[in-house]
Computed example of a mutant assay.
Amino acid sequence: MTSRTDSLPTILVVDDDASIRDAIADFLGMHGFAVQAAENAAACDRALAAAPADLIVLDVMMPGEDGLSLCRRLGAGGTPILMLSALDAVTDRIVGLEVGAWDYMTKPFEPRELLARVRALLRRPVAERAAQSGGSGDALTFAGWRFDIEQRHLRDPAGRALVLTEGEHALLAAFARRPGRILSRDVLLDLARGVDAAPYDRAIDIAVSRLRRKLANADPAPLIETVRGAGYRFLPAVQRL
């Protein structure tokens, strides 16, 4: 296992399977990361108390406190979490993302893909990481906009109030809490469940289109990007007020 080095990004690998844990730690260590490893939630807590991590690779199915519960606890700290699981149903991925994971991979996986995803998460600006961890009461700012999610207040860069429907509010909140992340239609359907649309993919496309038009009427700067074949991504950096 690679020890922590101040000049290297530090990855904490949490998995109860020693063979998987060590394989991930060795592979990431060979590619320029300082790596710490923990076999369960308690060991993870001890490792983080001793030294912070820049990213956590977290298994879902562990004895004692499972990965979902641990992710929910750790997600508020703003540290990116890449969740690993043998569960590959859409609902499993949605639950993982909803409790705070930044990304989700199913086992078995290609180590080179894991490396690429780790690097992609670490490239995100610190401001996006802070916004990622926000709860339902967040007041956020992005590209001159001010968005108080709990109070349901949205102001454009000129300071004018913009009224959103319930569905538009839920959709914008889903995007603003996850800046820079590609969100699939399935994930968006779950995050904005039951709002302004029936539960099918085309409904999300229509809802995103309506939200885009309303935002563009106030400020033409693009906020939501279509990622062909994958979903949508919120473009601006987000900060918590």
Rank of each mutant, 00 (worst) to 15 (best):
Phe27Glu: 05
Cys44Arg: 00
Gly32Met: 09
Asp22Asn: 08
Ile24Thr: 01
Gln36Lys: 12
Val35Ala: 14
Ala37Met: 14
Phe27Ala: 01
Phe27Asn: 01
Ala23Trp: 01
Met30Asn: 08
Met30Arg: 14
Val14Asp: 00
Asp15Val: 12
His31Lys: 09
Val14Met: 00
Ala25Lys: 12
Ile24Val: 13
Gln36Thr: 10
His31Leu: 08
Ala42Arg: 09
Ser19Thr: 14
Val13Gln: 02
Asp45Phe: 03
Asp17Tyr: 10
Asp45Trp: 04
Asp22Ile: 05
Phe27Pro: 03
Phe27Ser: 01
Asn40Asp: 15
Ala23Pro: 02
Leu28Phe: 08
Val35Gly: 11
Ile24His: 02
Thr10Leu: 04
Ala34Ile: 06
Gly29Ala: 09
Ala34Leu: 06
Gln36Val: 09
Ala49Ile: 07
Ala41Ser: 14
Val14Ser: 00
His31Glu: 13
Ala42Thr: 06
Asp45Ile: 01
Gly29Ile: 10
Arg46Asn: 08
Ala41Asp: 12
His31Thr: 06
Val14Phe: 00
Ile11Arg: 07
Leu12Asn: 03
Met30Val: 09
Gln36Gly: 09
Ala43Phe: 11
Asp26Cys: 07
Glu39Asp: 15
Ala43Asn: 13
Ala49Thr: 11
Ile24Ser: 00
Asp17Pro: 02
Asn40Thr: 04
Ala41Gln: 11
Ala43His: 14
Asp45His: 08
Asp16Gln: 10
Gln36Ile: 06
Ala18Leu: 11
Met30Ala: 14
Asp15Gly: 13
Leu12Gln: 02
Ser19Asp: 15
Ile11Gln: 07
Ala23Ile: 01
Ala43Trp: 11
Phe33Glu: 02
Arg21Ser: 07
Ala41Leu: 13
Asp26Ile: 08
Val35Thr: 14
Asp16Glu: 12
Ala18Glu: 15
His31Ile: 07
Ala34Pro: 02
Ala42Gly: 04
Pro9Gly: 08
Val13Ser: 02
Ala23Val: 03
Ile20Cys: 06
His31Pro: 05
Gly29Met: 10
Leu48Ala: 01
Ala38Gly: 02
Asp22Leu: 08
Val35Lys: 15
Val13Glu: 03
Gly32Asp: 07
Asn40Leu: 09
Ala37Arg: 14
Leu48Lys: 03
Arg21Glu: 07
Phe33Tyr: 12
Ala38Phe: 05
Cys44His: 00
Arg21Ala: 06
Gly32Cys: 10
Ile11Phe: 12
Ile24Asn: 02
Leu12Lys: 04
Ala23Ser: 11
Gly32Trp: 09
Leu48His: 00
Ala41Cys: 14
Asp22Gln: 08
Asp26Gly: 06
Ala25Arg: 12
Val13Tyr: 04
Ala47Gln: 02
Arg46Tyr: 07
Pro9Trp: 02
Arg21Cys: 09
Ala38Ser: 09
Asp16Val: 10
Thr10Met: 03
Glu39Gln: 15
Phe27Lys: 04
Asp15Met: 14
Phe27Arg: 03
Ala23Gly: 08
Ala43Thr: 06
Ala47Glu: 01
Leu12Trp: 05
His31Phe: 11
Thr10Asp: 03
Val35Ser: 12
Arg46Lys: 13
Ala47Cys: 02
Ala18Pro: 07
Arg46Thr: 11
Gly32Val: 07
Thr10Gln: 04
Ile24Phe: 07
Ala38Asp: 04
Ile24Leu: 10
Asp16Lys: 08
Ala49Gly: 05
Cys44Glu: 01
Asp26Leu: 13
Ala23Thr: 06
Asp26Lys: 13
Ala42Leu: 05
Ala34Lys: 03
Ala25Ile: 11
Asp15Glu: 14
Ala25Asp: 05
Asp22Glu: 13
Asp22Lys: 07
Ala25Gln: 11
